[in-house]
Design a protein around this nucleic acid. Sequence first.
DNA 1: GTGACACAAACGTCATACTTATTATTCCCG
DNA 2: CGGGAATAATAAGTATGACGTTTGTGTCAC
Lengths: 233, 233
Amino acid sequence: MENTGQGLHARVLESLGPEITAGEHSPGTVLRTDELAQRFDVSRTVIREAIRVLESMHLVESRRRVGVTVRPTEEWNVFDPRVIRWRLAGADRPRQLRSLTVLRCAIEPAAAGLAARHATPDQCAALTEHAMGMVATSRGQQLEAYLVHDTAFHRTLLTASGNEMFARLNDVVAAILTGRTHHHVMFTDPDPAAVTLHVQVAEAVRTGDAARAEELTREITVGAMAELDILAP
Amino acid sequence: MENTGQGLHARVLESLGPEITAGEHSPGTVLRTDELAQRFDVSRTVIREAIRVLESMHLVESRRRVGVTVRPTEEWNVFDPRVIRWRLAGADRPRQLRSLTVLRCAIEPAAAGLAARHATPDQCAALTEHAMGMVATSRGQQLEAYLVHDTAFHRTLLTASGNEMFARLNDVVAAILTGRTHHHVMFTDPDPAAVTLHVQVAEAVRTGDAARAEELTREITVGAMAELDILAP
DNA sequence: GTGACACAAACGTCATACTTATTATTCCCG
DNA sequence: CGGGAATAATAAGTATGACGTTTGTGTCAC
C-alpha cells in the first residue's frame, strides 16, 4: 500500500495530488495548512513542502490570509509527469488518454524522421531487435511480452530522435501502450499490420530513409487513434 | 516581468534554478542545505522548500546523509515551464531554442488540423483578425506590432485545437517567436510568403478544411526551422 | 453611503531540538 | 592480513513554538 514511503511530504503529496487532479476539490476550494496538518497527522513543515510542490505544478495557489486555493484545470501543468500519472489513475482517465494519444501522434512521426537521420548503429540494432521481438510475440496471447517489446521499441525511437523533448515523452507513450493492453482488455492478438509497420520503421531508420520512417510511423499512430475512436487527421 | 519577490523560497529558487540549468553546478555536485541557508541568509526551512521544488523538476535529488545532488541533464523535466525559461535565459539558449522549435514544428500542424474541426466562431474570428493584423504590420519596420499579432495568432490556434496539451505549449511558441524577433535581430520585414500563409491558415480553419490547415501550417513551421538552419523533415 | 482604521486570520519565516537513514570508520575475529 | 560486524559521524527529515507579514473584512465615524 505504501509505495510512497520516501518521506512524509511525498506521502502527503501522493494523497493530495490525486485528490485535486480527480476534481475532489473543485477549483476555488481553499485548503488550510493547519487542517491538512491535523488531517495527515504531520507537522505544518511537511504540509508546507507538499504545498510548495503542488504550487509548482500550478495545481494550487497559496496566498496569505486566504489559504491554499485550488486552481482551475486550464492552468495546471499538464506536462508534469506526476500530474499525468495522477490523471491517468483517476476518473477522467479516458479523456487524459485521448489527449496524450493525440500528442503522441503529433510527435512520434517527427521523432521517427529525426531518428532516421541521427540514430546510432546501436540504436538501429535495438530497434530491429525489438521489432523482431514484437513479431515473435505477436501470436498466441503473449500480450505481456509483446508489450515489453512494443514499449522498448518506441522508447528507443524517441531517444534516437536526438531531441531531448521527444525523449522525455517516452513515459507518456509507455503509459498509452500499457493502458491499451491492460485497461482496454486486449483479448485478441495485436494487429499483424501494425507489427509489420514496426519492422518497416526499424528498417527505414536503419537505411536513413527519413520520409519513409515518418510516413510509416504516422500509419502506426493513425491506428492508435482509431483504437480510441479519434478522427484521423 | 515575473515576480521573484513573492516569498523567500521563490527568490532562492530563481537563483538556484538558473545556476543548475546553466551547468554552474555540474551533475553529481552536492549542495548542503546548511551552506545554502548561510549563503542566502535564510532559514533552513526556506531552503528546504526551494529544494523540494527543484526536486520535483528532477533537477536535484535529496538523499539523507549525502546531501542534495545535482542530477544529469537527461533526467531533467525539460517540459517544466520554469526549466524552459531558465535554459532560454542561460548559456545554451541556442540549443534550447532548436529543441523547442523542432517540438513546435511537430505540434502546430496537428493543432491546426484539430482547430479546423473544433474552433469556435469566436476563435475563427480572432484568427482572421490577427492574420489581418500581421498583414497590416508586415511592412515598414513595425516588428513589435507584428510580433504581437503573430504571437496571438499562434496562441489562438493552439487553444482552438481543443487539446489541453497543445494549448499549454503557447508559452513555448511565444518564446520562440519573441526570440526570433528580439535575439535574431530581425532588421528586415517579415517574409511576405509567411504572412500570406497565416491568412490562408485562418481561412482554412474557418472553412473547416483540416487537411489544408495542417499542410499550410506545416509550411509555416518548415520556414521556422529553415531560419535556424534545421534540416527540413 | 463612503472613507479610514483597526482587528484578525492565514500563510511566511525563523530558531531549535530531536529523529532517522546512510555512510565511513573502527575493531575484532578468523 | 582480510573481511565482516559493531559503532560513530553526518546531513537530511520532522516536530514545535514563536513571531512577522499580508490582506480580507468589519466597524465606526462623518
